[in-house]
Design a protein around this nucleic acid. Structure first.
Length: 222
DNA sequence: CGCCAGGGCCTCA
DNA sequence: TGAGGCCATGGC
């Protein structure tokens, strides 16, 4: 079932090309440290925040040379907070930027890159400010390792089509999906992006069910 | 104007 | 260990 949903979404929305840092990264097998760092920062800033706001914050950080470990370490937390204000929760998120920069000083990207996926996930989850979704986003989109990302959109879509209960936990839904699709970084990447697109176009909190590509399978459970 | 956005931490049973 | 409160800005 999760595979059929994926095929249908891909047919309708076509390739999404995440992570949307630039258009050429996906042609290379591995990312530069700068790109990985930007993805990590983006994953953190987008917590409960729309991506359009995150882009503004990222641009502001870039303009002020704060899109690097050193840049963040050398900048006062209050100043970082001003830069990222459009992304909301600026007090929390500026603290988390500081914490992650310190973490990356202890564990350079090259070290993280070569870790086994589950060990990397556990390590990331030990960092204050990195929860399951942020960890999986970082693992998948920065390090190109297979860790399926669950978010509110995933939960909403999957529960509405009757694939899980709406109060399903993160780990339960992740297991359910992963068990039913191949272990494939490209597919994990694309699937998550397609779910986000579908949620934006049709499966909003107030659903737009007309012309929904999943309507024939959907139980319309709100 | 009210709702919501690609969550996570803390608290308190 | 799990539900509820809190964090904050901007688009619609």
């Amino acid at each position: 079932m999760p595979t059929q949903v994926y095929n249908e979404l891909l047919r309708v929305y076509s390739h999404q090309g995440w992570w949307p840092i630039n258009n050429e990264y996906k042609k290379r097998s591995t990312l530069s440290d700068t790109e990985k760092f930007e993805i990590i920062v983006g994953a953190l800033l987008t917590q409960n925040t729309s991506w359009i706001q995150v882009e503004k914050a990222l641009n502001e950080l870039r303009k002020n040379n704060c899109l690097s470990v050193q840049g963040i370490i050398e900048t006062k937390q209050e100043t970082l907070g001003q830069y990222i204000k459009p992304a909301g929760y600026f007090n929390q998120k500026s603290e988390r930027l500081k914490i992650i920069a310190q973490f990356l000083l202890q564990h350079p990207l090259a070290e993280l890159q070569q870790m086994e996926t589950n060990r990397l996930r556990a390590l990331l989850l030990s960092v204050k400010g990195i929860g399951p979704e942020t960890a999986d986003s970082i693992i998948l989109y920065a390090f190109s390792k297979p860790s399926f990302v669950i978010d509110t959109y995933t939960k909403r879509i999957m529960s509405r089509i009757g694939l899980c209960r709406k109060d399903v936990t993160y780990d339960e839904l992740q297991e359910l999906i992963v068990r039913n699709i191949p272990v494939d970084v490209e597919m994990y990447n694309e699937y998550h992006a397609l779910l986000v697109e579908h949620a934006k176009q049709h499966c909003q909190t107030k659903p737009i069910c007309a012309d929904c590509p999943l309507s024939k399978d959907c139980k319309k459970l709100i």
